[in-house]
């Protein structure tokens, strides 16, 4: 079997597994997994910029929030349906990532981290400033009756799970296709050695911009879906913490692997969920895990798997 076929087989297999799981899982884990799949989509988006292109952004919460508010505000004030709202959310994130990319990509390294952080912070503060519409930190509910696409009630657990799975599968396969394509190889080349890639004649800036925009748009799709599926939009999703989360998930799962973000999100979610039953300082363990990862498994879970077991893992 060719490498490409193996890669497609693996990822389609994972999607099939997730599909089957919904019939087996008890209600609690069923609900969790729906949530995890949406968050993992956020991480997949983040991974394209960070894992494959080496763009360490500390501001991806702004894209997630752009998606969430793009959906929620248009539904609330312009009477958009859930489907057009979802589209509006994705478009908002797309436009924001274009604007941020054009400015922030003029910088590299630490300056890029700070610039993205600052832009995200101003998005967060703007949500508070326009509290008249956004209801600030308190946020607002997207009413259950409105959360319907093509007659499918997305607040129903079965439908929600399916919607989350569709979103995740789509983004997972898109990112796989992307990385197998020449475009993806250029991104990896930029991550490994930007100067050399430039000298080889590639337009590094345009590739980085495209990467950031794909990354931001997928993150925005996740944000819009999160608002739609769980019925709430609030400013807390735009805080720094929600920029750090995808970084953690991706690092844990394995930066620069297609499946890593899902693995990382899943692992972290359950780690926190279980630890919070034992101690209120559950983030302590998150911290310890991060330190141990950097000391002993710098590639993350899937990165180590690739290094030791499945060498063809994309």
């Amino acid at each position: 079997m060719s490498k490409g076929a193996k890669q497609w087989g693996l990822h389609l297999g994972i999607i099939a597994l997730l599909f089957v799981l919904q019939f087996i899982l008890p209600a609690y884990h069923h609900g969790n997994l729906a949530r995890i799949m949406v968050l993992a989509t956020f991480a997949i988006g983040y991974n394209i910029a960070f894992g494959y292109t080496g763009l360490l952004s500390l501001g991806h919460a702004m894209f997630f929030a752009a998606g969430m508010y793009g959906l929620a505000l248009t539904m609330k004030f312009l009477g958009f349906s859930a489907a057009t709202g979802l589209l509006a959310g994705i478009v908002s994130a797309f436009v924001l990532s274009l604007a941020v990319g054009l400015l922030a990509l003029r910088t590299i390294g630490v300056a890029f981290m700070i610039v993205t952080l600052m832009f995200a912070q101003s998005v967060y503060l703007s949500i508070l400033y326009f509290g008249k519409y956004t209801r600030g930190d308190e946020g607002f509910v997207i009413q259950q009756a409105d959360r319907v696409i093509a007659g499918i009630d997305l607040s129903n657990p079965v439908n929600r799970y399916f919607a989350a799975l569709v979103l995740l599968s789509f983004c997972l396969l898109v990112s796989l296709k992307l990385i197998q394509a020449p475009f993806g190889r250029v991104l990896i080349a930029i991550r490994e050695n930007e100067e050399r890639t430039k000298m080889l004649g590639y337009d590094v800036f345009r590739h980085k911009l495209a990467s950031l925009m794909i990354s931001g748009t997928i993150s925005g799709a996740a944000g819009a879906a999160y608002g739609l599926l769980f019925g709430y939009a609030g400013a807390s999703f735009a805080t720094v913490q929600y920029s750090i989360f995808p970084l953690l998930w991706v690092l844990l799962g394995g930066a620069g692997t297609i499946i890593g973000p899902l693995a990382g999100t899943l692992f972290m979610f359950y780690l926190i969920d279980l630890l919070s039953e034992i101690t209120s300082a559950y983030m302590l363990i998150a911290g310890v895990v991060l330190v141990l990862l950097t000391l002993f498994a710098r590639q993350g879970i899937m990165g180590e798997v690739r290094k030791r077991v499945i060498r063809w893992l994309p």
């Binding site: 308190e138 019925g231 609030g234």
Partner: peptide, 12 residues
């Protein structure tokens, strides 16, 4: 904000 974020799930 925690109430408003949690209440939809309670309703569902």
């Amino acid at each position: 904000h925690v109430v408003i974020g949690s209440a939809p799930r309670a309703g569902e």
